[in-house]
Amino acid sequence: MEAVSNHEGGPRILNSLSSRRLPEENPSLDKVLSISNLTKTYDNGYRALKGVDLAIERGEIFALLGPNGAGKTTLIGIVCGLVRPSGGEVLVDGCDIATDYRAARKKIGLVPQELSANMFESVWGTVTFSRGLFGKRADPAFVERILRDLSLWDKKESNIRQLSGGMKRRVLIAKALAHEPEILFLDEPTAGVDVELRREMWEMVRRLRDKGVTIILTTHYIEEAEDMADRIGVIDKGEIILVEEKHALMRRLGKTRVTVGLSRKLDAIPPGLFARPLDLAEDGLSLAFTQKGEDDSGAGAEPGLADLLKQLAARGIDFRSVNADRSSLEDIFIDLVGKSR
């Protein structure tokens, strides 16, 4: 991973983090999943989760980001019943996963990371099986709708082993949806999936969200989280280091590099031109500065692009282009995880 050393203001990010580590508790919001002080220590002594607190709101798309080995899969595993927690509490729509596991698990659908399916079964058979396993009565019309939604209807009689990787992934999604869950976990859903299918899949995720399904996904493709998620959580070394609404996060921790291309070469920055650090390119043909968020000049404290352009115009310096390069969630992520190491 590329180190982001050229970004200034790193310590400030950390400071602001420590004061805003947890999601703001707002009782009026409807929590569909509440995780409190969840810990997991594996038999070999490895501490995968060190006291995770997390609340997921009903109907949102939540992206859980974290480097490999951060504890994402363990966290999902505990909520879904694959891994036994060492301590803490998980409530799924008010049902405790330990004492009321039947009610809790009925509300959850899991699409695992690996493409594991009963290779010798038909698509129809395996999706029907999943519905039954979760204690739902057979409903061929519902299963048909799921298969049609996922463009699997023509393949319903096919053996799963004959399907392509992308199709298999859809079958897993169909299986996870077969019992009409309220929460859908997608663990690395687009790993190894081609661009077109990835786009289709996100389209489907949006449709599910529109139907009121809460979606929690983990992904390595940060641009996906950026496109899709309502809120972002970052987990590292078994701890949630940040949970925030995506746009707020980008505003707060993102940076924008604004570059103004000049018509004529400038030898030096005229004194008093701009009240914040300004860089003149080596060729003297562009001026650039970095601002926090997408635009931090609104509050009036710091001058923004508009001020710079006015100043340039006032001094008769012609410019021909303006370019604003927003930092991506990936930069923010690398920053966060890098700083916490």
Binding site: C80, G81, L82, Y101, R102, A103, A104, R105, K106, I108, L110, P112, E114, S116, A117, N118, M119, S130, L133, F134, G135, K175
Partner: peptide
């Protein structure tokens, strides 16, 4: 077989005792 192929995940995550 499900342990080997990984499909056991579904049984473990299902509301079955």
């Amino acid at each position: 077989l499900p342990r080997f192929t990984g499909t056991i995940y579904e049984i473990l995550s299902a509301p079955v005792s």
